[in-house]
Amino acid sequence: MDCRKVEKLLSRYLDNSLNESSLDEVKSHLDSCEKCMTEFNAMVKIDGLVKLKAKETPSKEYFENYWRRLEDKIDNGHIYSLSEQKRLFSPFLARFAFNSILAALLIFLGGLLYIHSQQIKSLQFVQEETHKTMTRYLAHLRTKIDMKEGIQSSVQPFDKIEKAAIMQLKYQQSKDI
């Protein structure tokens, strides 16, 4: 057996998970090969270091109360597991929620802009219509003034609104001059 093959079997040799024939071959190789023996010793040391982790222990009370807490969960039904809780706040879901809120906000703003533009259009329409009516009214007023100045007695006298409009018209004319 060469060193390369032995190296791959060292891990199983260390854990006593080799069949008998391989076990004997690795054993005899290690007896004669210093390089592989050093490798094996390093592996043993690594395992020793890893086992230092096994010395960690929580408090004594923790294990004393273990069953009581577990029994509560069993009796009350275990609603959310830790992995499920994490899943609820997974980065994917957070991203999805953020994108959804953003999309809803954009749709809302778009809707607002559309409604606003419609309001402006209808306001412009009202303004145009008012302007047209006013123009017609003023034309009618001018005709009536002209007729008055031509001393046509049959023409009806000015009413209050017409008088006010004439005043306004004269004021506007003087301002234009």
């Binding site: 923790y62 807490r69 577990l70 969960k73 275990h78 597991s81 830790l82």
Partner: peptide
């Protein structure tokens, strides 16, 4: 986490 996961395993 270990507490939650171990209890989850027993449940």
């Amino acid at each position: 986490d270990a507490d939650d996961l171990s209890q989850e395993a027993f449940v």
